[in-house]
Design a protein around this nucleic acid. Structure first.
Lengths: 133, 133
DNA sequence: CTCTCTGCAAAAGGTTTGCACGTCC
DNA sequence: GGACGTGCAAACCTTTTGCAGAGAG
């Protein structure tokens, strides 16, 4: 059912190339929230005989982030990019042992009087990561 | 006045080797809060004619973290380790343009009813990063 | 037909590791 | 003297980039 992915990509302003449709189906096909790495995506595609080079997986995931289809989670593992299919505001537990992320609803964290960000700077994101072990 | 650093290291259970004393003096000598990278530390030492190889700087900084003298800030730049001389609980602004961290007092962020961390897991840290640009 | 994307390989960037030597206690 | 730390170089891993060719519109 690739129609859905093609529409999704079109709506996001991205050309519906074959690799992008495959990755979109993998990530959004069942509507579930996912935290994925580029490596995991490549493995899944491999297992489905849809080989896409790791570099292209990265390019695609970055394009998805730029298009707002995906969100990058900062602060989990250093040096590893983790992408979140849930683009609505929320936060995360990060289990250092299992390296797994778990969602925390945005309402569970309240931010009070923030010191003003340096002049001329505007807030572009807010990551709360509670690390557990 | 290296006496202070030697005492500091001893109290933390670390042998007072020359490189460690140098780095401790650089980081804690004036009691100011600092956010540093391994590269910055190496440069400063270089400039003071106290050459310490980058790998040793990393080893030392990691040792300091393990000993509780230093804290690693997660979630700023991916792939770059940033160490914070302020080990008390607090949070950060991260300016994506200047790549600079700014402190946010812990009291400015209130965490409500957290969903319980996965069974058997205990919280080991909490990083709040507000990214600005 | 043109512009963009992909595959591939190589580079880049930051951090870690292995080993022989030096040093702290 | 014995354990631990350091210097150095090489390895490592994830991510990015450059380029030629393929594909989408």
């Amino acid at each position: 059912m690739n129609h859905d992915q093609i529409k999704l990509l079109g709506a996001a302003g991205l050309r519906a190339t074959q690799p992008r449709v495959s990755i979109a189906r993998l990530l959004f096909g069942d509507g579930k929230d996912r935290h994925v790495t580029a490596e995991w995506v490549a493995e899944q595609l491999d297992a489905a005989d849809e080989n896409i080079v790791l570099a292209s997986v990265y390019n695609t995931l970055n394009a998805f982030v730029a298009a707002g289809l995906l969100r990058e989670v900062h602060g989990a593992e250093r040096g590893v990019a983790i992408f979140d299919t849930n683009t609505t505001p929320h936060h995360h537990f990060y289990n250092e042992k299992t390296k797994k992320l778990t969602d925390i609803p945005a309402e569970a964290v309240k931010v009070l009087k923030l010191p003003a960000a340096p002049k001329g700077a505007k807030t572009v994101g807010c990551d709360v990561i509670i690390r557990v072990r």
